[in-house]
Amino acid sequence: MKFRSYLLSLTVLALFGWVMIAYYDSALDIKSTFDDPNSNGFGFTLNVLPIILFLIVTLPAAVMFTRRQRKEKKGWKEALLFPPEFRERDEREKALTSKASRNSYISMMIVLPFLAVCMLFQPFVSDYFAAYPIVILMLFPVIQITVFYLSIKKRLQ
């Protein structure tokens, strides 16, 4: 896994998290409309900036990665769904991936209880930042990808 690929993954995850926060805020708006008996109509606000940014970053990246995979004679299913970091070219790369995946799995077992504890603060934080659970949820893949990347980097040095 190259640094560029790692950075792109983090950017996509951050933007996806932001998009989810925007949707979450809109869902709260919709709920307050339903809950308000004096409401005459139906309305909500949606921050479209993260959605636009997400599409600007992910669409070209998705097209580029898919075209590259298709050039390598990969099927559409594999080109669209298979993570590029698992495209091993020989046994050494397979060994690197398996060790990094193992470390990533172990890190999840360690991180999971800490993130679950972080969720306990949700009632206190939700007044100031309603989408707090989304941030906690997005930390899972961020930590997983970071551990995977660092494991590969360490073994390549």
Binding site: D90, R92, E93, A95
Partner: peptide, 22 residues
């Protein structure tokens, strides 16, 4: 032998132990 150049480099440096097949 059907591997990448990096694998040969890693073997020469002693950073990687090959499979019996390789």
């Amino acid at each position: 032998v059907g591997v990448t150049r990096q694998t040969i480099a890693a073997l020469e440096k002693g950073n990687y132990i090959p499979s019996l097949l390789l």
